[in-house]
Design a protein around this nucleic acid. Structure first.
Lengths: 192, 192
DNA sequence: CGGTCTCTTGACGGAGTTCAAAGCTAGTGG
DNA sequence: CCACTAGCTTTGAACTCCGTCAAGAGACCG
């Protein structure tokens, strides 16, 4: 269950066997089925989730009733509402399983304690946040400077398998366009 | 010179006098004049900058020649290209002073060393990254779900003084619209 | 086999871009 | 102190892309 997590951690930090054991005690294991929610709008996000298997999404619904997908989290990724999780504020996101998923969960408090007891992990989580910032920057630039078609192609390149695993209207909600527009963009691309 | 920085740090972490002294040795002081560049596209971002006074912006120019502003950094803020700074890759950003600015600079290596010698700072920088992630999330949601007018009003609320300090076409480049559109939105708002 | 979910296609309208021109303002040099 | 220029902002007109609304076609599941 922890293999994938420790494998990831080992790319930035080496943990001793005792540290790994200690680390494990701060997580709880959890399974969510397809269409089940890990977080609902209005609730406070208590748990940071590491996806061992399966696929989740974080999304929000705006005033006009339109869904916007913030993040897809396939296996090997972390997911939460950072605003709610770090600042203990009620969330405006929903986090939902798109496929049955196995998760490792940790609370903010447990994490602070874990980092105090296994300081080597500070580095891993700092690097994780760095990667997160980098990814968000790239998405922001993409949303500012790329055409709809370019954004779609970029997403295809970044997560090739996502197209098979996720309905198209969710890809559209991620890109910030309507399903109709996405459909037309795809038709256009097929003609080449 | 370090007052503003230590004041910020003190909101998350308490440093002893010796720790503060030690910390200071890792930074270099630097002044940039208006229109001077701290980073040019193609260079690798070696320095993370803390703005003591003045105002900077990070921006990029896309294939069509359009400017996109990633970030404004008034006094009390950090600025860099995270992708280039953390991963040592050539940057696609430019960082430019919009007003003469006093800066504290630190390299990636100096920072890793500083964090090793003053571990209390790990927490500050982790929190800083957290805030960064939160802010980027909010900007992303804003860019996905808000109308042009709403985005403009939100920016006004977030940085009221920015409107006085920055030419309008840069506000437009930050919001992802043309100066013409921004001008029309403003006219519309004045009519109410 | 009927219902629900998903994707496609068409017609129309609206918001934003582009291009071009003119008005404003501040800084510079005579 | 004024005149001139360069950069910034405004305005207008035509065009483009995307959203909206509506309808229809497959695909999957009970």
């Amino acid at each position: 269950m922890f293999d994938l997590l420790f494998q990831q951690i080992s790319t930035t930090t080496n943990l001793t066997a005792t540290e790994k054991e200690r680390c494990q005690t701060y997580f709880t294991q959890h399974t969510v089925r397809k269409r089940q929610f890990l977080l609902q709008p209005g609730d406070t996000c208590q748990q940071l989730a590491f996806v061992v298997t399966g696929l989740l999404r974080a999304y929000t619904i705006d005033d006009k009733g339109t869904e916007h997908i913030i993040q897809f989290a396939p296996e090997g990724n972390w997911i939460s509402d950072p605003n709610s999780f770090f600042l203990h504020e009620p969330s405006r996101y929903a986090i939902e399983a798109l496929e049955e998923a196995q998760l490792l969960l940790i609370t903010n408090e447990a994490m602070e304690e874990m980092l105090a007891r296994v300081p080597a992990l500070e580095r891993y989580f700092r690097k994780l946040l760095q990667k997160n910032v980098i990814a968000l920057h790239q998405r922001l630039i993409s949303s500012l400077s790329q055409s709809t078609e370019e954004k779609y192609q970029a997403l295809r390149r970044q997560f090739p398998d996502l197209m098979q695993r996720v309905p198209q209207h969710m890809i559209a909600a991620y890109l910030g366009i309507t399903p109709e527009t996405l459909s037309r963009v795809r038709r256009q691309l097929l003609r080449d």
